[in-house]
Design a protein around this nucleic acid. Structure first.
Lengths: 232, 232
DNA sequence: CTGAAAGCGCTTACAG
DNA sequence: CTGAAAGCGCTTACAG
């Protein structure tokens, strides 16, 4: 199936053409693209001008082969939950001025299993996975984190009465997601918790989290954030 | 930022290792992977056995460089709309036994603009774009279709009273989406319509659709599907 | 600060 | 039916 029928050679502009236009090397263009250090401002400006002029846009698959895809993958168990939409909005706003984009997957109902979805994202070289309201066990999460930067949000579903509160947590969480993934995002799992001190359940969860992290050799990355629970 | 800190070489199994294990060429493995013709059953079996044994999974970015990424990108204006969730479920079920996965984007609220999202998907070598409830104009849609196989669902939002009916349309639509994209999916746009004959609005839309398709040189791909409107 | 060359892991003609 | 080799468009050491 899928016999290619290229009625029109879709010749995208390549980095090489940009390099020629700007009169620099391909490596130089790559550096500007990655906002890497060690590039003079004049070179950078010249390259950027050529990029705009030629309307250059880098293909993620070529970049992904050796570098990053600039794609983050949120996986949601249920797309309809307004709680999740709020989280995504938060993440999106934090991503606004970056090259990153969210390409999300949902494992609800007839969709793929959560595990299959995560694998698909790993196969697609996502730079990071964001699991929202996951029901996976800690050992499985640890396993994922070994392959890709992972952040969990709202780990273990809260009861529906808590949605408002959880939303508050996740405005903060969204920031953290991005901070972690963009900055030194390898093998870190942050766990969002709440400031509620009456909950022994939370204590248990955190304990389990710590243990698993340590057992998975990423104990130094343990990071539990406690957000205050405001009513409303 | 994002200095790589590869605490553990993430050495995925490559096609080359599979080839060695199976005692065949790399090209042969690639053929099995793509389910291409011209491969003996014995070779195929041997390769599949090695794939399982080594737990091989092909990286989308490597495949995407010359071939496909096996990823379809649904674009939603509003993630909370239950109507959209149903559509996605339908598409997912049609995709079940394939290598394809959905990685969706939402342009709602603080998210990226619909246009930016589509560009991001094109940049990420999605094999096809599925625009659900889009508000883009026809010329813009034609422009997208020139770059990637495109299917629109629920073009021009229906009023909310029609959700049930529209859902019915889209169970069918989901099938069509897949059929189009997988089969000969280049530069096709199918438009889903309804069997309602009292609506002059529909007639107008279809007319506009036809015209735009023709003006964009893809008139031979015009495809309007009329699904019966059942109550319930 | 800048560039030439190798390499990422596939797919794609092209031979055989 | 099977395989060797080139090539996709970037990024990454390595020189200069």
């Amino acid at each position: 199936m899928a016999e290619a029928k290229p009625e029109k050679k879709n010749d995208r502009v390549t980095i090489r053409e940009v390099a020629e236009d700007a009169g620099v090397s391909v490596a130089a263009v790559s550096k500007v693209l990655r906002e890497a250090y060690g590039v003079s401002e004049s070179l950078r400006n010249r390259v950027r001008a050529s990029m705009n002029k030629l309307n250059y846009r880098p293909p993620a698959s070529a970049r992904g082969m050796r570098g990053q895809t600039y794609t983050l993958g949120p996986v949601l168990p249920d797309i309809r939950n307004p709680f999740f939409a709020d989280i995504l909005a938060g993440v999106n706003s934090a991503l606004e001025r970056t090259q990153y984009q969210l390409m999300m997957g949902t494992s609800h109902s007839q969709g793929p299993a959560e595990e299959a979805l995560v694998e698909a994202m790993i196969d697609r070289q996502m730079d990071g996975i964001i699991m929202i309201g996951t029901t996976e066990y800690m050992d499985r999460l640890g396993n994922i984190a070994k392959q890709k930067p992972l952040v969990t949000i709202g780990h273990h579903a809260e009861t529906s009465q808590l949605f408002d509160t959880v939303n508050n947590d996740d405005q903060l969480g969204a920031r953290l997601v991005v901070k972690h993934l963009l900055a030194n995002g390898f093998r870190n799992i942050a766990m969002l918790s709440s400031a509620s001190t009456t909950s022994t359940i939370l204590a248990e969860r955190e304990l389990g989290y710590r243990r698993e992290m340590i057992e998975n050799g990423v104990g130094e990355n343990i990071n539990i954030i406690r957000a205050p629970q405001t009513l409303r």
